[in-house]
């Protein structure tokens, strides 16, 4: 641990962490951006047993999916996971895509809902938020770090699904060319790159939901309330998206383009929906982060 890090040390008392905060020493100037708070936050997130179990659940689904498809290979036609499951199974990469299609509806939103519930409301509930704010950390910076940790959490969650799915799929089905939705095949290398883009796109959507969760988390001191609220928002969005009569509302729903990552598996890829989706994600992230900022920086922290 360097002197610089010590100077800006603002590690936080929460769940077994000990407070090691100290005053700035005049000689050691802190760097413009310190990652110490973020690293402490990530250690906290990754160290929680419930989060570890959640990651196991996220990783289990693609494995189950791959094994199930392998066992029923000759007649794996009807399915609910879009066309990826009915791929001619010479390429294992359909497994992570089918897993993402399934998990983007419920499991990944639930994961980010849990993390965002913990981020502010959880600290308030444990009584550690006060201590966080007594050390010289600006509330805006704390909120930025909290959101950065949620984005990292979203990336970790999505890539767990993608990587475990890819490994399981390749192990069971091999690395042949991949059939696109357009009926022509793309090489394995191209397919891998498009899978990475698809995972990044999914992570952007989950990160946007994380901003909503961060805002809800500043409204309550009960992490469970924030988690449930985020899940309700997600589920209502999916329901509204299914009602054709509400088409005017659809461009405003956070989940509208979440499934558009399948557009990457056309030949050539169709970018328009993906760009629309990224715009929506960015909009949600900015608006709800600002709302969280307006709430968090002006409220009295009593616990």
């Amino acid at each position: 641990m360097s002197a610089v890090e010590k100077a800006t040390a603002t590690a936080v008392a929460a769940e077994g962490r000990t407070e090691v905060g100290s005053r700035h020493t005049p000689s050691a100037r802190p760097p413009a951006v310190s990652t110490r708070l973020l690293r402490s936050e990530m250690r906290l997130i990754m160290g929680r047993r419930r989060n570890q179990m959640g990651m196991l659940v996220l990783a289990a689904l693609p494995v189950v999916l791959a094994v199930a498809v392998k066992l029923t290979e000759p007649h794996n036609r009807g399915n609910d996971a879009g066309d990826f499951l009915s791929q001619a199974t010479s390429n294992g990469l359909f497994v992570p895509l089918a897993a993402l299609t399934l998990e983007m509806t419920l499991f990944l939103p639930m994961a980010i809902a849990m993390l965002s519930g913990d981020s502010i409301a959880g600290e308030a509930n444990l009584g550690t938020l006060r201590y966080l704010l007594t050390v010289p950390v600006d509330r805006t910076r704390l909120l930025a770090v909290k959101y950065a940790s949620l984005v990292l959490g979203a990336l970790i969650g999505v890539f767990i699904v993608a990587i475990v799915g890819a490994v399981a799929g390749i192990a069971l089905f091999g690395t042949g060319p991949m059939l696109t939705l357009s009926g022509v095949r793309i090489g394995f290398g191209t397919a891998v790159w498009r899978l990475v883009l698809a995972a990044l796109f999914c992570a952007a959507g989950i990160s946007a939901l994380g901003a909503v969760g961060l805002f809800v988390s500043t409204l309550t001191e009960q992490p469970m309330a924030a988690t449930v609220t985020v899940m309700i928002i997600t589920i209502i969005s999916w329901i509204l998206l299914g009602v054709n009569q509400l088409a005017f509302l659809h461009p405003w729903l956070i989940v509208e383009q979440w499934m558009s990552f399948s557009d990457l598996f056309r030949e050539p890829p169709l970018w328009s929906n993906l760009l629309t989706g990224l715009g929506q994600d960015l909009g949600y992230a900015i608006v709800f982060w600002l709302a969280a900022w307006a709430r968090f920086t002006s409220k009295d922290i009593t616990s």
Binding site: G82, D83, L181
Partner: peptide, 26 residues
């Protein structure tokens, strides 16, 4: 190409050859 959420139908004409493709029925 007719683009659907999880599928695609294509009509491709190249000279005298006309292909139609449906991803739903493969």
């Amino acid at each position: 190409a007719v683009v659907g959420t999880n599928g695609e139908s294509d009509i491709i004409r190249n000279g005298r050859t006309l292909w139609t493709w449906s991803s739903a029925t493969k």
